[in-house]
């Protein structure tokens, strides 16, 4: 299927791969923010995941272990953040920014020996005859397992937040930590868990970048993907399926502008590049207009420190 020189099927398949790192990081950040913590260190956690995943995959020759290591590294970074903001009650915004800078620097140091090294390949899943189905085959059955995992995680996060007791507690902590505390829920423990989960997903996204999408390690390779993930959470107004939509839209616009160029169009690259951010701002404006008299889309306790006084 080709429209105006653009292969729509190829484009869709490509944008799914291109969006996966951001989708993973944004899903993780959504859970963290739902628990009422604003972690601006997504970029730092991603890049640590990228370098740790790369190093582990190269050392063991096994990309799966690389993804595990990437998730662990991201989770460790997040726990550092949790320790500072939940135990020592440091400012979440400042700590998050520091986490990003720390991650960028530390990853560059660790990664020095891995520049120019090639990681073991991650194979695409083999669906046999399914991959040959026209249209659906190349779009749905031509990816590696992390792409499917990222989609599964969105569904799981949606289900848990919406239909389970654990999700209810998480949301309660994020909406009013004092009330949750009064009911006997351990606010700090819930937030540690949510941050750890968020960090693991950011690290996994980073590892996907260095092991599949590029695939190689280079300093600063996340190039702002963590910030896009943060923007997507806001764009999605803290709903998992909208995170999926947002991530694919951001990824889709990048993939589309390159494909348009390859097809020979002279397109205003800069306008297309800023389009996702403009849309995010518009969504923010609409959200604040809609919710002026009603409930806010953001968790009510987002960014506030919790200190159990009694």
């Amino acid at each position: 299927m080709t429209i105006g020189g653009i292969d729509i099927i190829g484009l869709t398949a490509m944008l799914m791969g291109a969006s996966t790192p951001v989708l993973l990081a944004a899903t993780g950040e959504l859970v963290a923010e739902k628990s009422g913590v604003l972690n601006l260190g997504v970029e730092g956690m991603m890049i640590m995941g990228a370098v740790a995943g790369f190093a582990a995959a190269v050392a063991t020759g096994n990309p799966v272990l690389g993804f595990v290591a990437g998730a662990l590294a991201g989770a460790l970074m997040a726990l550092l953040f949790a320790f500072l903001t939940q135990i020592f009650l440091s400012n979440q915004v400042a700590t998050g920014l520091a986490l990003t800078l720390f991650g960028l620097g530390l990853s560059a140091l660790i990664g020095k020996g891995y520049e120019g090294v090639r990681p073991p390949p991650t194979a695409k899943l083999d669906f046999g005859p399914l991959a040959d189905i026209p249209v659906i085959g190349p779009i749905l059955f031509s990816h590696d397992w992390i792409v499917y995992l990222s989609l599964l995680l969105v569904a799981v996060v949606w289900f848990v937040l919406r239909y389970t007791r654990a999700g209810l507690i998480l949301r309660a902590v994020g909406e009013s930590h004092d009330a949750a505390h009064a009911l006997g829920y351990r606010v700090v423990a819930v937030r540690f868990a949510a941050l750890g989960f968020g960090g693991a997903l950011a690290g996994l996204g980073g590892a996907y970048l260095s092991l599949v999408r590029v695939p190689q390690w280079t300093e600063g390779m996340t190039a702002g993907a963590g910030w896009i993930a943060l923007a997507i959470v806001v764009f999605a107004s803290w709903r998992p399926w909208r995170v999926l939509l947002g991530a694919y839209m951001f990824g889709g616009i990048t993939a589309l502008q390159l494909q348009l160029q390859a097809a020979g169009y002279a397109i205003p690259v800069h306008i297309l590049s800023m389009a996702p951010y403009v849309i995010t701002i518009i969504v923010l404006v609409i959200l604040s207009a809609l919710h002026r008299h009603g409930v806010q889309a953001a968790p009510a306790s987002l960014g506030k420190s919790f200190h159990a006084s009694s």
């Binding site: 190829g10 484009l11 999408r213 993907a225 993939a255 390159l258 494909q259």
Partner: peptide, 19 residues
């Protein structure tokens, strides 16, 4: 529009190969 951005360079290569 970059000298050095591995992810973007990889995407650009993929777009050309797809074409």
């Amino acid at each position: 529009y970059t000298w050095f951005d591995p992810a973007k360079e990889a995407d650009a290569a993929a777009a050309l190969i797809a074409d």
